[in-house]
């Protein structure tokens, strides 16, 4: 089972790869759209990459609730297989 740090680091690598955001900027309180400039389509790419990496299902209806990096980390920690 991944720790919060591991999930945050993994997510930061994904966001870096997809949106070119520096890894150190991907902090728990950051909003994907407002702070990190991850648009709605890039968010889908992040979600699909996260699903694969953390063995978790993130349904389309859930994606809109993941506003901050912290929301995504919590969702993954709670729902990962």
């Amino acid at each position: 089972m991944a720790t919060q740090n591991e999930v945050q680091e993994g997510l930061a690598e994904i966001v870096n790869e997809i949106a070119g955001i520096p890894v150190e900027d991907v902090q728990l309180d950051k909003s994907f759209t407002d702070d990190l400039d991850v648009d709605s389509l890039s968010m889908v790419e992040v979600v699909v990459a996260a699903e694969e990496r953390f063995d978790v299902k993130i349904p389309d209806d859930e994606v809109k609730n993941l506003k901050t990096v912290g929301d995504a980390v919590n969702y993954i920690l709670t729902n990962a297989a």
């Binding site: 709605s40 389509l41 968010m43 889908v44 790419e45 699909v48 389309d60 994606v63």
Partner: peptide, 11 residues
């Protein structure tokens, strides 16, 4: 509905 379409259309 952009996000579900994008996910389906790509993967």
């Amino acid at each position: 509905d952009g996000q579900p379409v994008f996910r389906w259309a790509v993967w």
